[in-house]
Design a protein around this nucleic acid. Structure first.
Lengths: 212, 212
DNA sequence: GATTTTGTGATACGACCGTATCATCAAACC
DNA sequence: GGTTTGATGATACGGTCGTATCACAAAATC
């Protein structure tokens, strides 16, 4: 039929329409028809590019993963800081804290998917745990480097502390999304703990934070 | 009509049927009809005791809150420990960590409601933040007491550390529910951080203790 | 130029949803 | 003891859901 169209692009447009709905009204509001309307296409097109709803949900989840990791890398780059372990840890964790509209959007969408996967575990067998694990390993590496450089207490167990930092950040993010505190308050709490962690050996404050 | 029946009891039975569904299959699976079946009553009865679905969701949420706080108190009491600040903090946090079937059920259900509230904020105006706030204040109080007793570094900012501990625990809980690690691993991470926090002046390394 | 493919619209189907209505039957009340 | 009232059953209505089907036009292929 009409001009040959870029399949991957169309799929991405539709998938991101779903993500947009999920971030604002939740995944329950993301019906095929709503996604079609949001993407500005007909219901048939959504069906054409994603044969079934599960395909659509999984496809969009993949796009979300891409956006999330892109956000982390971009955020770290935007900090323009020396790639010290401290800066990398700080940049990574603040990237996934919902402080600005974009990170709020991402974390809200992530939370929506999280709940869906809890209810339907077969939907995303391990697509969910892969990225957190990667993040945790990255943080562990940075902490070990910082320990070797004498910036972090060498007696600390790096994997445990890394897991704790990530859990802390996720928990803070949940509290922000839940309206318990705002992004700045969460950032302050995170910074406080990071400062204490990296205060080893240095006389005092080692904080420089460029929030976005 | 038939024998006068205990309204509150019936409401509770139906509400808890919804919580059971929410914990296993998510809130999306909790239709009026499913709740009726799960509770062993007719659809009409569910409508009778909860005029609308929103009423049912809110009513069940209240029951969940009761179960949650009951679990925390019960858990602390079951520890049978001296009511030292350290024990109280430990007991409180481990109570909300999904380590056994019951706490898994509670946290899963809580997560389901959390996602719902994210999508429909008007559903539970502040019913959601009230309990976390209370928990945080309780932890803050215990930390201050511990500081006065010399068990925790007095230089720490108690409210910030309390918020951090709660966020850490919640984040760990999410990772357990998400299948990233099991309850024992999460408990080990939490214990590690608590041990460091309460290591002040007790012969452990006093150079630097951080909770996060 | 005929034919096959690729992309798109319109519409229909059966299932389930929340909610409403009507009927009924036993206890409570005067 | 008739009547009101509290509790429950059966069933229906309009809407939305995911999915399927039919039609059809423009490009690609031969």
């Amino acid at each position: 039929m009409p001009k040959r169209v870029d399949h991957d692009l169309r799929r991405r447009e539709i998938g991101e329409a779903l993500l947009r709905i999920a971030s604002t009204r939740g995944l329950q509001a993301a019906s095929m028809r709503e996604v079609a309307t949001e993407a500005g296409v007909s219901l048939r097109l959504v069906q054409y590019y994603f044969h079934t709803k599960q395909e659509l949900l999984l496809g969009a989840l993949a796009y979300l993963g891409e956006q999330l990791s892109a956000r982390v890398e971009e955020h770290i780059r935007a900090l323009g800081l020396p790639p010290s372990p401290r800066s990398l840890v700080y940049g990574t964790l603040t990237a996934i804290l919902p402080t600005d509209p974009e990170s709020r959007r991402l974390t809200r969408t992530y939370a929506a998917y999280y709940a869906l996967v809890l209810a339907e575990p077969e939907l995303a067998a391990d697509h969910g745990t892969a990225y957190p694990d990667l993040l945790e390993r990255f943080l562990t590496t940075q902490l070990r480097t910082a320990q070797q450089a004498g910036q972090v207490d060498p007696d600390l167990d790096a994997p445990t502390v890394a897991a704790g930092l990530l859990a802390l950040t996720n928990g803070l993010g949940s509290s922000v999304l839940g309206g318990q505190r705002d992004g700045d308050a969460a950032l302050a709490i995170l910074t406080y703990h990071l400062d204490r962690l990296f205060a080893h050996g240095t006389g005092g404050m080692a904080s420089d934070n460029v929030a976005a």
